[in-house]
Structure formats: structure tokens, C-alpha cells
Amino acid sequence: MFEFIVSHYNYWMYIALMMVGFYAMMAKRNLVKKIIGMNIFQSAIILFYISTSVKRGATVPILEHAHEGHGAVAHAAHAVDVMQYANPLPHVLMLTAIVVMVATLGVALAVAIMIYKRYHTLEEDEIMMSIRRG
């Protein structure tokens, strides 16, 4: 049981973090706080993916001694000890996801600026009030 918790608690931490962001996205009435919540949610997903790339005792996926002698390259295909290096794929996926996240953040902030220009506030309640007033 204890071993199970130790080997899975990292997932639970990321999920807790995601839920913090998710709650902020839904419950906060300030638009910037919603955006921050969105960022926390996305960052937690990124951490979650990255944690799947970990192998115990492995190092970063940069092959060592790669360019020592060109003849060795042909053999290298079989010589690489896969257990020695972390899984590169989640890193790549998350590089893409980070960019997507930044882009979403940018557009969300641009829209928030438009809202601010129109209503001079970012509090959802005040915006609703000023809409109701006409």
C-alpha cells in the first residue's frame, strides 16, 4: 500500500494542481484570475506528461559519445542502452503544448483588453451590471 502511494502520488499532485486551475476557471469572477487558472490547469497537464517520461536512473535523452569516430555511427544504432535515457517523446509533445498554451494566453489577454476598453473593468459582476444598465 505504502509503495503504491509512493509510486503514484506524483500523478495525484498534478491532478490536485489541475483542479486548482479548473476551479479558478469556473468559480473566479475576475477575468484575469480565470486566465491564471487556465494557465495553472495547462501547466499541470504539462507536468503530468513530463512525469511519464521519467525512467528511474536515466538521464536526459542526449546520446553520449555520439560523435566519436564516424565508423561508430553505424554500430551506434544497436549500442544505445535505452534504459539509460529518459523517454524523449513527452518532452517533444509538451514543447508543442507549451507553445499552444502561450498562444491561448495571448489571445485570451487580447480579448480581456478588448473587454476592458469597452467596460473599463475586468470584474464579471460589474460587466454584467453595466450591460444590464445598457
Partner: peptide, 27 residues
């Protein structure tokens, strides 16, 4: 996750793309 697709990248990166940094190769 570590045994299905990713070992291929680690094994063949150098041969396919002559790049020791596997993340770069995949990217």
C-alpha cells in the same frame, strides 16, 4: 510509454538524423 515507441527514437536518432539530442530529432 517507455517501451513501445520511444526506444526506436533513442536507437535510431543518430543514424536517421545524425543528432545526439533525441528530443531535437523527434521535434
Amino acid at each position: 510509454a517507455s517501451t513501445h515507441v520511444s526506444p526506436y527514437y533513442l536507437r535510431h536518432s543518430l543514424h536517421d538524423a545524425a543528432t545526439p539530442n533525441v528530443v531535437t530529432t523527434v521535434l
